[in-house]
Design a protein around this nucleic acid. Structure first.
Lengths: 235, 235
DNA sequence: TCGAAATCGAACCAATGAGTTCGATTGTTG
DNA sequence: CAACAATCGAACTCATTGGTTCGATTTCGA
C-alpha cells in the first residue's frame, strides 16, 4: 500500500446517498452509486494518471467496495474512459452559449475568446489533457476526442456567427470553418502551452488572457475585416 | 554502495589510462555501452511511456544484459531521465544557428519561424512531450525543463536579433524578450496542438507551416514594425 | 417482518515487473 | 597462458496490482 494516502474516511459521508429521491430498485446500475464511483475514480486518476492509479485506491477514495465497482464497470479501462467522458461533457457542454450575438464584432470575438482561453487553461481541462496524453500511445483516439470534442463545438458556434457577419457584409471570409479554427488557435497563444507543461501552475490572469486574445482579435479582423472594423486604432 | 569513483589506486589507473585508443578498459562506464543502453531505453520509452515500459524490454531492445544496465544506471528513473536529457540536447542544440542575419526582417523571421515550427512538430519533439506529460504529476520539473529548454535558447537568439533591429531603428519594441516569446508562440498556432493530441499523425507540410508562420510574421510586424516594414502592401 | 437483491469487505489468485544474485563467458592486459 | 575485470544471462526475490470469490451485512419492496 502507498502510505502516502491520507486516511480520508470523510468520504464515507458520500455513502449517504439516501438524499436522492428514492429510486425503486436498481439492477447492476444505480446512477447515484455510479456517480459516486466516478467521483472517486476521477480524483485518483487525475492525481496519479492511468497507469499509476490503483484500483484499491479508487475503492478507498470512492467509499465503495471493490466488488461493487466491478459490477458497474468491466475493468480499469472502462472506468477510466467513463470518468473521462463525464469530465469532457462537463467541460465542453455550454461553450456555444458563450457566443453573445450583440455588440461589435470586436467585442463579441473578444469576450468569446477570453472565455475560451479561460476554460482551456483551467485545471479541469489541463488535467484532462495530461490524462489522455499519458495513454496516448495505447489510446490515441481519446486524445483526438478531447481535441475535437472541444473544437467542434467551439468552431461550429463561431462559424455560424461568422457566416452571419459575412452575409451582412461586415466580414469577408472564404472558408468560415477554417477561419473559426484559426481564431481559436490564435487565442491560445502564450498561455496554453505553458500551462500544459506545468510551467505555469495556475490559470492565466484576466489581464494576460485579455492581452493575448486582444492580439488574436486584432489579427483576425485585419485579415478578414472590411474597412469598417479594421484597426479601431486605439492610440 | 556501488564502486563509484573511490580512491582505488588500481581502478583509477585503469580508468585514467583509457585516453587515446578507442577502447581500453572501462570501469563501470564505457561511453559506447552507455549509448547503447540509452538507445534501447529511448526506443522503448518513446513507444510505451515510462510506466508501461519494462526494464526487460529495454534489456532486449538494447541488447545488453540487465545486470549491466544496473551497473550504468541506478534505477528506471535515472535511466529515463538520462535518455530524456540526451534527446533534449539533440533537439535543442543548434536552434540559435538557424537565425540568419541577412535579408529583410520579414524574411528572417519567416525562415526562423518555419524552422522552429518544423522542429517542434517533429516526431522527436512530440514524443518527448508525451513522455514528460506522462509523468507530469510525479516529475513536473521534467516538463518544465522541456518547455524552457527549447524556449530559452530560441527566445534568446531571437531577442538578440530583435535588439539589433531596434538599435537600427527598423523595429520598435519595448520588451524584446517578451516579443521574442510572443513570436514563437504565435508561430505554433494551428499545428502544435493538433500534433500533440495525435490529431495529426505527421508533421505539418511545408505549406501549412508557411501559412501559419506567415500570419505570425504579419501580425508581429504590424505590432512592432515601423512604417518601412509595415504591410508589404501588395497593391 | 420477511426475503431477495445489492453491496460490502477481506481474503485470495495470477501475473507482472523492478531490482538482485551469482556462476558462466568474454575479452583485454601483462 | 594466466589473472582479472566487465559483461552476460537466467533464475530468483519481493512487492504490487488487476481482478475474482464468497460469505456476511445492509437495503428495501411487499
Amino acid at each position: 500500500m502507498t502510505s502516502k494516502d491520507s486516511g480520508d474516511d470523510a468520504n464515507a459521508a458520500a455513502k449517504a446517498s439516501s438524499a436522492s429521491p428514492a429510486n425503486r430498485r436498481a439492477a447492476g446500475q444505480d446512477p447515484a452509486k455510479r456517480e459516486q464511483i466516478l467521483d472517486g475514480a476521477e480524483r485518483v486518476f487525475t492525481r496519479d494518471g492511468f497507469d499509476t492509479a490503483s484500483m484499491n485506491d479508487i475503492t478507498r477514495e470512492a467509499g465503495v467496495s471493490k466488488s461493487t465497482i466491478y459490477v458497474y464497470f468491466a475493468d480499469k479501462e472502462e472506468l477510466f474512459e467513463a470518468a473521462l467522458a463525464r469530465r469532457q461533457d462537463l467541460i465542453f457542454n455550454d461553450i456555444q452559449s458563450w457566443l453573445a450575438t450583440d455588440g461589435t464584432e470586436e467585442d463579441v470575438l473578444m469576450s468569446y475568446g477570453c472565455s475560451l482561453v479561460q476554460l482551456l487553461c483551467s485545471d479541469l481541462v489541463i488535467q484532462a489533457h495530461h490524462l489522455v496524453i499519458g495513454v496516448i500511445s495505447r489510446k490515441p483516439e481519446l486524445a483526438r476526442m478531447i481535441y475535437r470534442g472541444g473544437r467542434e463545438r467551439g468552431v461550429m458556434a463561431l462559424k455560424e456567427y461568422l457566416d452571419a457577419r459575412v452575409a451582412e457584409g461586415v466580414l469577408e471570409i472564404g472558408d468560415t470553418h477554417l477561419a473559426a479554427g484559426q481564431f481559436i488557435e490564435l487565442c491560445l497563444t502564450g498561455t496554453f502551452r505553458a500551462r500544459l507543461l506545468a510551467y505555469h501552475d495556475s490559470p492565466p490572469s484576466e489581464e494576460e488572457v485579455r492581452f493575448f486574445v486582444g492580439a488574436a482579435v486584432e489579427m483576425f479582423l485585419k485579415c478578414y475585416g472590411t474597412e469598417d472594423n479594421q484597426p479601431p486604432k486605439p492610440d
